[in-house]
Every structure is written in C-alpha cells, then in structure tokens.
Design a binder for these strands. Structure first.
Lengths: 342, 342
DNA sequence: TAAAATTAGTAAAACGTTTTACCATTATCA
DNA sequence: TGATAATGGTAAAACGTTTTACTAATTTTA
C-alpha cells in the first residue's frame, strides 16, 4: 500500500498551525517573521519526525526555479568531457543542484533542440561546450536571463562568461617542446573548424615553427570524416607520402586515438620513429607504448571555475548586471617517451 | 524585456474558449470529448502560431510524472558506462524522456542518497548499476511502484528486472581461449566483492582452469585500493614473485588499466612475455602495444534492452502486475595480440 | 410531445508550494 | 486615554496544468 508523502498541509493539520507559518519556518524565515520560538521548535521537530521533504516540483512551479543545471558537451563518452562532468556533478550536488548531461555531437541542430528542450523545462543554468554555429541561440538564452557559462571554447566578438585555457600558449609551448627535442619537420593534425580553441592551437603551432625557422605542415580533417576511411586515408598519406615528417602534434585526444590506430595499421614499428605529442591527457596515453606526451588541460580547475561562475550567476539579483566573467587557465606539458628524440 | 511564455490561459483569452477545452484538444482528446472540428482546428492553429509549449513543471505537479529517468552508474568517467549512457540517452530522447546521469562510486551511502534525492524529485524511472549493499533500498523503491531496471549485475535471491551478460560463460570462454593458446599458469585478477558479476566471472575462470587440469591463482583487490599503492603492490607481487605465471585475465577494464601501468613500471618488456586478457573492451585496448585481447560486452544491445524494459514498465497500468523481465546477453571474445602464445 | 440521450462544451478543484496582504491582540507612547 | 506600533500569526492568491463533474442546448426516441 503506497502511502503518499507528507505535505505541508499534513503538518498543518497535525499541529493546528497555518500552512503559511510552516512555510516560513521551514524556509528559515521564522525569526524574521516573528514566529514564536515554541512554534518554530514544534514545527521543526515534527517535520524532522515525519521526515518531511518539500515537493520540489511544486517549489519549482511556484518559484520558477528547478535546481537543475545542464552540462552540454560534445560527447559524454569522451574521457575529457566525462572527467569534467564528474567534477561538475560533485560540486553541484554539494550545493543542492543536480546536473543533466547531454551530448551534442558538435552538431548545431541537435544543440539547438537541446537548448530549447531544457529551456522549456526551466533548468536554472547552462554550462555549454558550444558547437560552432549556435552563437545566436546562446545569445538569446542569455537575453532571456538564463545563466550561461561556456567551456573549452568561446565565440569571437561575442562577450560571454567562459572558462578556457590559453590554447595559443599551450600549443606554442608544446610545439617548442618538440623543437627543443630536435624534431625538424613537425606536422600539426587538427580539425577543420573555425572554432576558437582549434584556431588558436593552430596559430600557436605555426608561430612556434616559424620562429624556429622550420616549415609547417598542417592537416585539417573534418569532424565527420575522422572515424571514416576518408579521414584515415588523409592521415596515412601525410605520414607515408611526406617521408620527411619526424613528429606530429595532434590538436585533440580523439585525433590522437584515431592516428595511433592508423599508425599501428601502417606499420607497428613506425611509432618508434615518430615524435608524438597530443592535446588532452588521459590514462591510456600514459600506458601506451611508447607513452604519449601530452598537453594536459587542468580538468579540476576548469570544473571548479565553471561552477564558481555559474553560482555567481545563479545568485545575482535580476536587475543588477553582473560583470563579464572570463577565466583563462594554463595547460601543463607532460613529456613522456613519445616526444623524445629518436 | 523578458516576456513570459504563453500559457493555456493566454490561449483561452485570445480564442475565447475555456482552458479545459484547450487542454483536451492539445492532449489529443478533442475527438473523444466531442469538441467540434472547427474549434479543434482553431486551437491547434493558434497554439502552433504562438509556438505554445506546455509548462512541464506544471504538468509534472499535476500528473506526478516528470519525464525524467535517472541512470546511476559506478563512474560516468569509465568508458564502459559512458558509452552505455550515450546509447540510453539517445533512445530516451526519442521518446521524449530526459536522462540524468550520476556516479555512485560503488558506494552504498552515496547510492542511497542519490536514490532518495531522485525519488523525491519524482523521476519516472531508475536504471541502476547497483552498488553491493543497496538491495533493500531498491526493493523499497520497487515497492513504492517506481520502475527500476538493474544493469550489469543483480542481487541473488531478489527477483528484479535486469539486463546482464552471461558472465560465467564469458569468463569461461575467455579463460578457455588463453588455455587454447597454450598458457599454463593463468592468474585471475579481480575485485574483492560479493557482487554477482564478479563472482560469476571468477567461477567461470575457476571451472575452465579446473577442467583443463591447471591450477588457479586468484588475486582479489579492494575497490578502494586499486588506485592506491597497496593495490599496485599486490599486483606487482603476483607478477614478480610467482614467476611461473604466464598469463593474466582481468575481470574489469580499470583493473587492466592499472595493471598495464604497473607492468610498464616493473619492466616495459614484461608485457611481451605475458598473456593478457581483459573484460570490457575499449578503443585503447585496440591501440595498445601489444593490442589487448578482450571479452567485449555488447553495449548497444545492453542499452537497448535496458530501455525496452524501462518503457514496458513506464507503460504498465498501476494495478496490473508486469512479469519479471530479465535479459541475459552474450559477450564476444575479441582476440588480439596480447593473448597469442609468446 | 415528453423523456432520454447526445453534443459541445465549461467551472472549478486539485497538485504542493511561496508570498502578499491582511488581522486580531497586546504593548508602548505622548 | 486614545493613537501607534509591535507581536504572532493567518487567508487566500498564484504558479500552469489535468480532470471530474456539471450544464445548456439540441436531437432522438417511444
């Protein structure tokens, strides 16, 4: 026999006190509203006793707040995003918020649908790793006063709250590391996109190579082709046709992953004669033979920063403008075997 | 200037029709309730025109349904769970449901808190990878008529809906594969737990080894020690002290991952002299040198089955009992380099 | 032709909160 | 002493739906 959860009304009936009074007391406004000590105690004790929990749906309906945040990423299956998700989840829970995760596949249409969906469901805030073409949608979201923080990338010329890393600097530092280790023909393999994080990474690479008086070799693959034969062929060509290439810097973890497969496929020994450096670290790069050097993003700090800004936004009063909050973090170079001179 | 979303009331005012009628029409009950064609059309057109969307919070409050499911896993950062999460997410969205993910860390206390939390928030259903000690809590959940499906493991002697694989068979098949490849001293490294999936895997291993007349070597680590030095030392001991061991079968992906690190640490060459087989597959095992043979769980089917059962439960009428739904899937052996005889 | 049935709707309660506006009493002040 | 203020609350509206119970007008039936 399923008995329904107690509501304020039940408490009211049991204690012979009005609903209003109970609401005030349970929301900590008892003192302020001059409710007597005894009544406060009586209500608190009874609520405790019957293990009363407010119905959050009703609260949401009344207040327009849902205590739910959404974290939109490219792919929750990608360890980079999954790890950040864990960190965000943890912090949110501590503050009584829940987090919805969802994967956009870096697809604008899907991103738009998800934004609409969650906006309708009145989630309280969006933490978004934006796909390239949803600048307008995000702007609209912000206009309608919904807290939004971008992660990993941002839109040029559109001032929004964000947490990113210094991609240019990190990329330059990474490239420099390869140069310092004696590599002379360093290729850069990246994604064919106008997204800022990738553009900045490419720029960092180019500048470093230029300054060292070396030539650059950039290969840009389309997001969709990566897992297909077409993408694999391009990588294969770069590595086999241009025999002078002695090192490759990958701009993101799944490129590296795909490339490692391809390299293995072309010739398992090849990997020992090629310098390799990747953006984004994970446990498997450490285990790989040879272990893969990485430019590691500070996941913990990114998650913490994202949430710090989000909570600032959630707390602000409607009328008061909050200043723009933009954080730029530094990535760490983690040298391993794959970038040692052969 | 933020203008509020149109509600049914606004439509009512605009069209001079009652709220009730609109609700009936928009819920497709127009015909049934004998609303005239013209009125139906008028309402539908207008709703379309102003892009009316029902406030789901209000719907939830009234109906007690939230159109939200929760997927509780050990760790959303583990690719095994992350991949299933993606599949579930996809299917749910198609049916108008959203999915909340959360990580239990295989911790009973945390699991309990999460269950309470979401139950209070009236999520419509739970898909749970249960931590070992929450059998009672799940039973209570089911008793209060909440749809629950377990994944990956189940509780002995507690009949609940679940989707698991034939762990015993898969483990036996895996062990047999190592035996067939000529390994004579196969160790099994697993988690120190009473959870069914692990118990079954250990049993499969033992039986296979027994039947082949070989001796067994089982090492069980505690969940908490794995990432700590203590766990690493145990593995190290097993691999170095007992020099006769020529192959290791790991019962889960993160054990393999940790072990690969340790092996690399002890002696990078060691890996070439050791047969390795792991439960759970992922892209990195494919890339690893040597590539790691795996007993792969059918992620896609698991996700689909979980959701198929969940939707059956969601659809059932309150009074009618649904039969127990338990699916056992087969895992696939994916032999790679690491299990070839040295 | 009167009763019964159908048609085409509507009013109002309910879900469980929060919050505004109000109201008795009692105490204080001038 | 009469007005004012403080004390300790409460009634009722509101959030946006769904759903039950009703009704007035028309049509059918006997």
């Amino acid at each position: 026999m399923k008995q329904k959860r107690p509501s304020i009304k039940d408490i009211a009936k049991a204690l012979n006190v009005s609903i209003t009074t109970i609401s005030f007391v349970l929301n900590g406004k008892g003192e302020e509203r001059k409710i007597s000590k005894e009544v406060i105690k009586k209500i608190e004790d009874y609520a405790e006793e019957i293990n009363y929990r407010p119905n959050q749906i009703a609260q949401s309906l009344r207040t327009g707040k849902s205590k739910i945040l959404v974290f939109m990423v490219e792919d929750i299956g990608n360890p980079f995003f999954a790890k950040i998700a864990r960190i965000i989840e943890e912090i949110a829970y501590q503050k009584g918020y829940k987090v919805l995760f969802c994967s956009t596949e870096n697809n604008d249409k899907r991103s738009r649908e998800l934004i609409t969906l969650f906006h309708e469901r009145q989630v309280d805030g969006f933490i978004v790793i934006p796909s390239p073409g949803i600048q307008k949608d995000i702007e609209n979201l912000i206009k309608s006063d919904v807290p939004v923080v971008l992660g990993d990338r941002y839109f040029k010329g559109s001032p929004m709250n964000h947490v990113v890393i210094d991609n240019y600097g990190a990329s330059k530092k990474g490239t420099q590391h390869l140069i310092d280790n004696g590599f002379k023909n360093i290729a850069f393999i990246s994604i064919d996109t106008k997204q800022m994080q990738m553009v900045d990474r490419a720029r960092g690479y180019r500048d470093a190579v230029d300054e060292a008086g070396l030539s650059n070799q950039v290969l840009e693959l389309s997001f969709d082709d990566i897992r297909k034969q077409k993408g694999k062929d391009s990588v294969k060509n770069l590595l086999t046709q241009k025999e002078n290439i002695d090192a490759v810097f990958f701009s993101t973890n799944y490129l590296t992953q795909t490339a490692l497969e391809i390299i293995k496929d072309i010739d398992p020994k090849l990997i020992y004669n090629l310098g390799i450096l990747t953006f984004d670290d994970n446990d498997f790069f450490k285990i790989n033979t040879p272990s893969i050097s990485a430019v590691a993003q500070p996941l913990q700090e990114m998650g913490e920063e994202l949430m710090r800004i989000m909570f600032k936004l959630l707390k602000k009063s409607k009328d008061k403008e909050t200043p723009l909050m933009q954080t730029v973090l530094e990535a760490t170079l983690t040298p391993r075997d794959s970038s040692r001179r052969k």
